[in-house]
Design a protein around this nucleic acid. Structure first.
Length: 706
DNA sequence: ACCTGATATCCGATC
DNA sequence: GATATCAGGT
């Protein structure tokens, strides 16, 4: 047995692992062995004789909770059966599957994913705005975002719009009405979206003391990972569950809070000690992951951050090369240069130890094309999920109807596959299903062989709802195939492969309900083409890279309007979050960090190439903390071209291409001290003020520091 | 009345 | 690349 905490942990980690009870807050800096600490904590609790089934482990993904449990049981040499682990949403789901009826909701509800919610919203919107055809009316995606954001942040729609989309304020009443109807609709059809899962769980805990007490038996020890990304309801749920004993350990890092758009609030961490007065705070400050050079650069990013829990990350002197600032001429050549860099890196580290990170899913597109051409296998995290493709959703909709016949969105999916049936006919048919008067239904079925087929299959499935899910998929495929062929004539083979994969995934499940829940709550990432599980490069959004680490990391598009995202440019809170996001990205790297900053970017809307402005986060860095490499017009980018002084010279050669210059800091009467980022002729400056964001200011209003 | 196919606009991250 | 609307077909 190798469970020897005193040997394998540093003093702070050891303290966190063996702390006796009561509320504990662990502030764990990036790479400080946070996962390791949680794993040892789990093992320790069981080793101390606590019943595994009284432990609840809440993590950000199900995968990470499973991994932690496996590693903990390896450590102990005994299984950890009975520990409940998963995300907040999956925990809520598990409780509500049993007790939703206690708060007046059917136990066999269907969970709506983002796309489902959008469909519902769209219909409500169409119904409401029948007469007007207003082109600037918010689209379904925007509507869902706003409504969800208002719920997650627990502020009114009005305030949400004021803060995040003031141009939509004229539509406030319409949006409010849509939101209200959306709630009614979900209730009428037994549907819950992600947010509902949490709020309904809270309602249950509040209103049913008996159930709350019962559930607490399984939560004598609660461990919450990534606590900085919990929102208000999640905070309250934990408080209810931990009860008066408060055996709660929250682990997180305020500097890595990157989910404010989902209502996550750092105040859950910052106010923790107020909510749980007897809290012990333990800080893990030793970084084991990154080299000194990477850590040095990353720490600089946080220098300008506004509010933070004081902590100082330090590391053993782990040596390594300076981070590199790669400066391709365009975003197109960026793909080429990154490919070459990957190739170079792959000589010394495995492909699966290299990751390319970016702010938004579409930014990896040019790189993906080039990687495919070059025959590199890669896996992409973030972006479109496997279950979000139309044909997969079609099949899942059949299955949803087996469990919840009042799931109107699912009916619409399967019925509108049939030629001649659109949303309107579907709704009429749907109403017939639940009414005495079946005339319209019978008439349509007689006329429409395919509809008859569909209903027959669904009846068969419902009769045998206990059979394994993959069997059901087989049956569905028989009737679905011809509809499918008509609908997806163009890229038939790829989609067929997807359905086979779905069937394969399904074959690992015996229960339909569990299968469907996992597909919405924890969908498989895009299933790659590499069947033999060969090691492959990782492409990932920064958000999806949370908690992961690689030997080599390259970050794309460190350019204003991309990273930081355009949305954040003039909102100081969002700007702070972009900063933390960049911090998270950099601290994923162990040995090599590459920052790519293209000088120009192709804009599809204008169909031309525009010069870029370097990201303010790059401009704030001390130029000595990285090495700069420029792509030459004359030939391919290579390390031999490296010439530090040349970057200054090239500015005069090509004025269209901006360059990084150190303008130093300045003072402003209102905004305080800020980093001057660029000079805008004739006499303005762009300045980044910590806490206020990027501002363009007249020269006479600021005072330069010497 | 309702469904289907063709053309202008907008683009964030996730459970 | 998706979404939203408009025009033509049953």
């Amino acid at each position: 047995m190798n469970f020897e905490p005193e040997k394998n942990l540093n003093p702070a980690q050891y303290q966190a692992v063996t702390v006796s009870s009561g509320p504990v807050l662990v502030i764990a800096g990036a790479g400080s062995g946070k996962t390791r600490t949680i794993i040892y904590r789990l093992a320790y609790l069981v080793d101390q004789g606590f019943d595994p089934s009284s432990i609840l482990l809440l993590t950000f993904t199900r995968k990470s909770s499973q991994e932690m449990l496996t590693r903990a049981s390896n450590l102990l040499g005994q299984g950890l059966h009975g520990v409940s682990g998963g995300t907040f949403h999956s925990f809520a789901n598990n409780v509500l599957r049993r007790y939703a009826s206690a708060v007046n909701f059917p136990n066999d509800f269907t969970i709506l994913d983002r796309g489902d919610s959008e469909e519902v919203i769209k219909q409500i919107k169409d119904l409401q705005t029948k007469e007007k055809k207003d082109r600037s009316f918010p689209k379904k995606g925007t509507l869902v975002s706003m409504i969800s954001k208002s719920r997650n942040k627990e502020i009114s729609l009005e305030v949400t719009l004021e803060k995040d989309g003031s141009h939509l304020l004229p539509y406030l009443d319409d949006i409010q009405a849509i939101a209200d109807n959306y709630t009614k609709f979900k209730h009428a059809h037994g549907l819950l979206d992600y947010d509902d899962l949490l709020f309904l769980l809270e309602e249950l805990l509040l209103e049913r003391q008996d159930l709350c007490d019962f559930l607490r038996l399984g939560c004598r020890h609660i461990l919450v990972d990534e606590f900085q990304d919990t929102n208000c309801v999640q905070g309250r749920i934990i408080k209810h569950l931990s009860g008066p004993e408060g055996n709660l350990m929250a682990v997180g890092d305020d500097a890595q809070s990157i989910y404010s758009f989902r209502g996550a609030t750092v105040s859950n961490i910052l106010d923790f000690t107020k909510i749980f007065p007897k809290t012990q705070v333990i800080k893990l400050e030793q970084n084991y992951r990154s080299t000194q050079a990477i850590l040095h650069l990353s720490n600089q990013i946080l220098v300008g951050a506004r509010e933070k829990y004081e902590k100082k990350l330090f590391s053993e002197d782990k040596q390594g090369p300076k981070p590199q600032l790669l400066r391709p001429i365009s975003d197109q050549s960026q793909a080429q240069i990154v490919l070459e860099k990957i190739f170079e890196l792959s000589q010394s580290v495995g492909l699966n130890e290299i990751a390319v990170l970016f702010r938004a899913g579409y930014q990896s597109y040019p790189l993906e094309v080039i990687l495919n051409k070059a025959g590199f296998t890669f896996q992409k995290y973030g972006g479109l999920k496997f279950t979000e493709t139309a044909h997969i959703k079609d099949v899942l909709a059949y299955l949803r109807l087996v469990l919840n016949p009042s799931d109107l969105p699912a009916w619409q999916r399967v019925m509108t596959l049939i030629p001649g049936i659109g949303p309107k006919s579907c709704e009429r048919l749907y109403n017939c299903l639940f009414q005495e008067d079946k005339e319209f239904l019978e008439k349509t079925v007689k006329k429409n062989q395919e509809l008859y087929e569909l209903l027959k299959v669904l009846d068969q499935l419902r009769e045998k709802s206990k059979q394994p899910p993959f069997k059901m998929i087989e049956q569905i495929m028989e009737s679905y195939r011809s509809l499918f062929e008509q609908k997806y004539r163009d890229d038939f083979p790829r989609r067929i492969a997807g359905l086979e994969q779905l069937s394969q995934i399904a074959s690992t499940y015996s229960d339909l309900r569990v299968f469907l829940t996992d597909m919405t709550l924890d969908p498989p990432e895009q299933v790659g083409l590499d069947k033999n599980h060969q090691e492959s490069l990782i492409l990932s959004t920064v958000h999806s890279a949370k908690g992961l680490e690689w030997d080599a990391v390259i970050i794309l598009d460190l350019v204003e309007e991309r990273f930081p995202s355009r949305h954040a440019l003039f909102d100081s809170d969002l700007m702070e979050e972009e900063r933390r996001l960049f911090y998270v990205a950099c601290t994923r790297a162990r040995e090599y960090l590459g920052l790519s900053l293209p000088d120009s970017i192709y804009s599809r809307s204008a169909s031309r190439t525009d010069p870029t402005t370097p990201s303010p986060f790059i401009q704030e860095l001390d130029p000595n903390s990285y090495e700069e490499f420029r792509e030459r017009y004359s030939g391919q980018f290579s390390g031999n071209n490296f010439d530090r002084s040349s970057s200054q010279v090239e500015v005069s050669v090509d004025p269209g291409v901006s360059s990084i210059q150190d303008f130093g800091f300045c003072q402003h009467k209102i905004f305080g001290r800020g980093k001057v980022v660029s000079f805008i002729p004739p006499n303005k400056y762009k300045v980044n003020f910590p806490g206020f964001g990027l501002k363009v200011i007249q020269g006479e209003y600021i005072q330069m520091e010497i």
